[in-house]
Design a protein around this nucleic acid. Structure first.
Lengths: 125, 125
DNA sequence: GTTTGACTTAGAGTTCACTCCAGATGCTAA
DNA sequence: TTAGCATCTGGAGTGAACTCTAAGTCAAAC
């Protein structure tokens, strides 16, 4: 697959695809004789993973390390697991923060909706 | 309350507290004769809100607008509600992305844990 | 009264994660 | 074979959200 195709498939700009590869967030992509990128199924798997992880805010640094460990072979399985466990912990914390914020937003929206009818803002605390 | 006290209470640096006030993310804080900040209960309420919203990634721009609308009085109730509804929508989407990522992390961690015992990585897809 | 440490401001610097640009090279269609 | 578009690289630029610095002011302790 060409970079244009991959870019469309995953809705990631070509610049970002090249950037991810340059910084080692995904392994080096295959090239044609001319030097053009030729994405394999495996490359696409990495891109999908990168997209998923980044959409949840997993830091690039962690993903670079994960990618490096993976390329070092089976000796790094425990290290990879530990890295992912650490990121999972942070993710769960973030989700908890967001849940609290969601509750607060729901509460405020509710009060504003009532005020639209009654004309009175009645905050509890 | 002094800036040091507020900083400790909410675990936000003094620099960030001043920054939030300067950009209008919270309303102007009371001052002593000498020009030092003297935070009231109300100021603290705003800081708590700012901390909560920011911890969930609600953009500063939106919070500045919310703060400005609030200071314009009851005529902005609908606008404020709409702003919060919009941010809630984005927040829910982000939480869904994070849930997907969490599932993926759990899956991968599980495979790595099994591999630590069996020595074999067995990915489904 | 003076020293010491907290606080003030304006503005510059930092970090993260892209995003854009320039100039060169590759590929395809007429 | 040549026009024209895609892709390449290295490096500079951007935007968001802080974070730090410098130079000065305030306030409590001695």
């Amino acid at each position: 697959m060409t970079i244009t195709e991959v870019s469309k498939k995953y809705d990631i700009t070509q610049d970002t695809l090249r950037y991810y590869e340059r910084i080692g967030l995904i392994p080096a992509v295959n090239r044609t004789k001319g030097g053009m990128r030729n994405y394999t199924e495996e490359s696409c798997g990495w891109i999908e993973l990168a997209k998923c992880m980044r959409s949840a805010g997993i830091p690039i640094e962690a993903l670079i390390e994960y990618c490096a460990l993976t390329q070092q072979g089976d000796g790094t399985i425990t290290a990879r697991k530990e890295l992912l466990v650490e990121e999972r912990t942070k993710l769960v914390e973030k989700m908890e923060d967001m849940k609290k914020t969601l509750d607060k937003l729901n509460y405020k929206i509710d009060i504003y909706e009532k005020a639209e009818v009654t004309g009175v803002l009645s905050w509890k605390k």
